[in-house]
Write a protein that binds this DNA or RNA. Structure first.
Lengths: 253, 253
DNA sequence: CATTGCAAGATTGGATCCAATTTCCCCCTA
DNA sequence: TAGGGGGAAATTGGATCCAATCTTGCAATG
């Protein structure tokens, strides 16, 4: 048991925490594309020295969220709308493939039950006939878990890794759901119904085709929205990601 | 338009060099799975301090070639044969998709010519009716460039990134070609002929299907070989058993 | 004899220090 | 006035130092 004031689990390094924080700031849009990441500034903003910060930056650069240039440091990478579209296109293929793989395997009853629970949860959230903003977080959780369940049932860790990477784009992660058109969400959730059932019944190709359209359509919607207003997809959700790791033992200032 | 990440003579940091060296050692099998990467040992083996080494290790860990455990350091990751099979399955889908994307675009004549040059080069290398070991490097280069050409013609940078990652497995990169059965190589190169022509003629689905089989079959062959003899695939190349990197102890570069 | 406790050495993670490169501003010149 | 030097400040990359954690080996104990 460590004596940390901020409960620092011994098996987590501060570089990991820093990486997680910076990643979050970028994905939330707090650190905008093109912005330079000054090491001194960031390190004392986060209350750590430059060493773990630089480790974190190296990792994030490897993930593709920031760009590095020797002797000039890191800056937040900018993604074009075309890259966003490409990400959805590839994700559609990968998740479609995951559906096919999952359908070709024997799905345990417990997982079928989980599918049903998730779909039913979605039905419940949409049962009002309107999109209550307060229900968005719950719907988003359901959606994320639905997609992840399929990917885990496919049993191919590469798919999981690559799909996660396609979410590694500012303003374009699976946390973003365009929650403003009931018919579109309803139809999207209807896809969930069909996909779950198709997988359960071993209809791999059909599940694949459904998923491809499911993802591609979402991508088209988002791309369209981004073209009109690049930042309009960021809905009000203040998470106050500031103030983790407040005081380390030597504050330097 | 940004290509050629490695050809730019821009300043290279020593962390990048170290990363490249370690990556190479792992992919070549010189650092075997499970092996612990001791920082002191490695850093003076490579003639740098622990700082750039640790940056390099953090990057390589992010790529998935090594695993990290807090306070216990890094060790070379072991991949199961099943993970290798999975990698080929995903790569097949991705490269197949790349074929379809490429075929749906307008291919510049210069690229068509490049296709023809590569395919002709392959014909030449196989024209003897046997597999001369001395021709393997040339065939491998042709093969790598053929696949990369398709991926670049697809114009989707995510595909490129993900396919590269599937090569990030020890003993299973595109540098490995099972160069011992003429008929198999001949048929494989015949796939190249058909794929190139299908793409040039806009037959996307056909090109996709050809590529999927092309990759999956190579994967099956390799997996089979790995099951019999996990290290047998490394044979044809120079082994350099103790040819450790000459430690540049004198210091800077 | 197996197990536990513990201390010393080994190893890692983080902080600090120094050198090399870049950036920026001011002055000079055509 | 526009366009270069040139040098100081800012910033990065790498080396070294220190603290925390892990590992190892041995002795004490049941």
């Amino acid at each position: 048991m460590t004596t940390a004031t901020t409960s620092l689990p011994a098996e987590i390094t501060s570089a990991d925490l820093v990486a997680k924080t910076i990643r979050e700031k970028i994905l939330e849009g707090e650190l905008e594309p093109g912005r330079r990441l000054q090491q001194d500034h960031l390190s004392d903003m986060l209350g750590v020295s430059r060493t773990p910060l630089r480790t974190a930056l190296a990792m994030i650069a490897q993930e593709g969220l920031i760009e590095y240039e020797a002797n000039r440091g890191y800056r937040v990478r900018a993604f074009s709308i075309s890259e966003v579209r490409d990400a959805f296109a590839v994700r559609a293929q990968l998740e479609g493939f995951a559906c096919r793989c999952a359908a070709e395997r024997k799905i345990p009853d417990a997982m079928i039950a989980r599918f049903e629970a998730l779909v039913t949860e979605g039905d419940r959230l949409l049962s009002g006939g309107t999109l209550d903003p307060s229900l968005l977080p719950a719907y988003r959780r359901m959606n994320v878990e639905f997609h992840q369940l399929i990917i885990s049932l496919a049993g191919n860790s590469w798919i999981e890794s690559f799909v996660r990477q396609t979410h590694n784009v500012p303003l374009v992660s699976d946390r973003i759901i365009l929650w403003d058109n009931y018919d579109i969400i309803y139809r999207s959730h209807d896809d969930h119904h069909r996909i779950a059932k198709a997988i359960a019944q071993g209809e791999g190709i059909r599940a694949e085709n459904l998923m491809i359209e499911h993802v591609i359509f979402a991508g088209k919607l988002l791309a369209e929205r981004l073209e009109m207003d690049p930042r309009g997809v960021l809905m009000p959700q203040s998470k106050t990601p500031n103030g983790f790791l407040k005081s380390r033992k030597n504050g330097k200032l």
